[in-house]
Computed example of a mutant assay.
Amino acid sequence: DYLAIATLGISEIIIAIIKYEEWLSRGVKNVTGIPRPVPYEVDLIESEWFISLANFFGAAEISDAASLFVKLCYAVLFVIVLAIIMWFAERALKSPWGRMMRAIRDNRDAAAAMGKDVKRRHLQTFVLGCAVCGIAGAMLTTLDGQLTPTSYIPLRYTFLIWVMVILGGSGNNWGSILGGFIIWFLWVEAEPFGNWFMSTITAPLGEGSELAQHLVAGAAYMRYLMMGAILLIVMRFAPKGLIPEATNRSTAMTRSS
């Protein structure tokens, strides 16, 4: 817990330095014109092969078909990158290095007594985690075509990812992926659901009711309420997540003893 608190505190200090020391990092100035690993919509619209492909599938609008094609290309790229990362993660988890890292997580004092360099291993986990985050950030910025530092708020890119890991299972790689898909789907659908819910419960009040207008206007904040409720429910009824960490019998007996 103290390590997590210190990590968040230090990260905020680093973010503040990057934001305000413009001579070092350009501050919060946007970066535009980032090249994409997939074709651009404008180029697709002018391509004969894509026009023929869109007509073959009966697309009504070429522009919509181009946008859908780009998203499909990114989906394929995302699946490939995710498969590679998961392969390395599962290999590392089942290796002697992975067993050592779990031992440090469960009891760092016992691991240090066995001659393991705990501080060095903690540093390794930070470096590996930052590398994965860097890959994800590179894919996100190339999809948007620009980097806008002010749009990355901690509530969305720190707390939300934390909820994803807790929901899926913090000790299981596949659980983290499942939690990521579920939480992101709920995050996207929470606002339209909130609008429908508030409109439904305020329908008897009439259109001129100030209370109804206030509740409908605040429907966008339903996503924050939903994320908090999910976090509380999971920590109360399923603290190990939807896919708990797999433990063999000998490990479970050792922990219980």
Results as ranks from 00 to 15, higher is better:
68 L>G: 10
125 T>K: 06
65 A>G: 12
130 C>V: 11
44 L>C: 03
228 G>L: 04
30 N>T: 11
88 F>L: 12
154 P>A: 04
219 A>F: 02
193 F>E: 00
134 G>D: 05
83 A>E: 12
214 H>F: 15
244 P>Q: 08
113 A>Y: 12
90 E>H: 14
32 T>C: 07
63 S>L: 12
218 G>M: 13
74 Y>R: 08
196 W>Y: 06
63 S>G: 12
159 F>W: 03
204 P>L: 13
173 N>Y: 06
91 R>D: 14
159 F>V: 03
213 Q>F: 10
99 R>T: 05
161 I>S: 02
62 I>D: 03
139 M>Y: 03
5 I>C: 11
31 V>P: 02
113 A>I: 10
13 I>H: 14
73 C>E: 11
82 L>V: 14
130 C>E: 10
76 V>P: 08
137 G>Q: 01
105 R>A: 04
135 I>N: 04
61 E>M: 14
61 E>G: 12
35 P>L: 05
250 S>P: 03
231 L>A: 03
222 M>L: 14
172 N>R: 02
91 R>M: 14
171 G>D: 02
144 D>L: 13
17 I>E: 14
68 L>Y: 12
190 A>F: 02
36 R>Q: 06
188 V>M: 10
202 T>I: 06
140 L>T: 09
226 M>E: 03
76 V>D: 12
77 L>I: 12
52 S>D: 08
196 W>P: 00
7 T>W: 03
85 I>S: 06
166 I>C: 01
220 A>M: 11
249 R>H: 09
246 A>M: 15
178 L>V: 02
6 A>T: 05
59 A>T: 09
65 A>S: 13
126 F>H: 06
31 V>E: 08
180 G>R: 01
136 A>S: 09
107 N>Q: 05
214 H>E: 14
145 G>D: 05
2 Y>Q: 11
12 E>P: 10
255 R>G: 15
126 F>N: 04
15 I>P: 08
74 Y>L: 11
102 R>L: 07
46 E>C: 07
227 M>K: 02
203 A>P: 08
140 L>D: 08
182 I>H: 00
92 A>I: 15
150 T>V: 09
67 S>N: 12
21 E>M: 13
245 E>W: 08
183 I>Y: 00
148 T>I: 14
99 R>M: 07
161 I>L: 05
169 G>V: 00
139 M>L: 09
230 I>V: 06
110 A>Y: 07
157 Y>C: 01
13 I>T: 15
234 V>C: 01
135 I>M: 10
191 E>P: 03
191 E>L: 06
58 G>C: 08
